[in-house]
């Protein structure tokens, strides 16, 4: 049984079908990269997994348990699945430390002083020890994005979703954020990334999926998908993306 299983996931916004029957297995500890042009359904798929968007049809299973049942309280699921967004979405009225401690305090009802040591360790691990007491607008894009990752990790999630987390960053800041992902991979985190970083996907992913028009056109290990893509649409996309 895979950690996360998607079966025929369909998501529509009005008349527009954004996910059109997606099947995908994500094993525990795997890093899966979703690639494809913008509008292909990558971000929406991640939002569906985190139950930020209800799906119209299909099933999403976490540890074999269907989490896409209509009417299910999404809070418990979201606490187990962390998500990081393209635009960081840190809370601007809180320091980095407060941003990170908010959810564990509220959802797990852990008092501040009990949280503090573990949270400080997280900050140190990702090179942010000096930045704990800064407000988001005092941080660089790369630092903000790393704080956002720490914020999601502080909930001790079983799966992490990354929605184009380097797309809003200056090129010289991309590396520091991707390094964090490699670190998490080493620690055995299960991760799903929507990304435009082809080089990173090729090097680090365990599985790469090419999405177009709400469908997974082709999926496989990176050597296969980047080296010998079978589907003509994949070939066309990669020819353009890797130019």
């Amino acid at each position: 049984m895979a950690k996360l299983e998607l079966r025929g996931v369909v998501k529509r916004f009005g008349d527009v079908t954004v996910c059109n029957g997606v099947d995908l297995d994500i094993e525990a500890g795997q890093m899966v990269c979703l690639i494809g042009a913008s509008g292909g359904g990558k971000s929406t798929l991640l939002r569906c997994i985190n139950l930020l968007e209800p799906i119209e049809d299909g099933e999403i299973r976490l540890d074999g348990e269907d989490i896409s049942v209509p009417g299910l309280d999404p809070q418990g699921v979201r606490a187990r699945i962390g998500m990081v967004f393209q635009n960081y979405n840190l809370f601007p009225h809180m320091t980095a430390l407060e941003n990170v401690m908010l959810a564990p305090r509220r959802v797990h009802r852990t008092p501040r002083d009990q949280l503090r040591p573990a949270v400080e360790t997280l900050f140190r691990r990702f090179g942010l020890a000096e930045r704990m007491h800064n407000y988001p607008d005092q941080l660089s894009g790369g630092q903000q994005q790393r704080v956002a990752i720490v914020r999601a990790l502080a909930m001790r999630p079983e799966v992490m979703l990354f929605d184009e987390i380097t797309s809003a960053l200056d090129p010289q800041l991309v590396g520091e954020v991707l390094d964090v992902l490699l670190q998490l991979k080493q620690e055995g985190m299960t991760m799903v990334l929507a990304t435009h970083e082809m080089g990173f996907a090729r090097e680090a992913a365990d599985k790469v999926c090419f999405l177009k028009a709400g469908r997974i056109v082709e999926q496989g290990p990176p050597e296969q998908l980047f080296g010998t893509p079978e589907h003509p649409e994949t070939q066309a996309f990669l020819a353009r993306a890797l130019k």
């Binding site: 809070q75 699945i81 998500m83 967004f85 908010l102 959810a103 959802v107 909930m155």
Partner: peptide, 8 residues
């Protein structure tokens, strides 16, 4: 969305 994704 960010706050909801954290389980709040």
């Amino acid at each position: 969305a960010a706050a909801l994704s954290l389980g709040l």
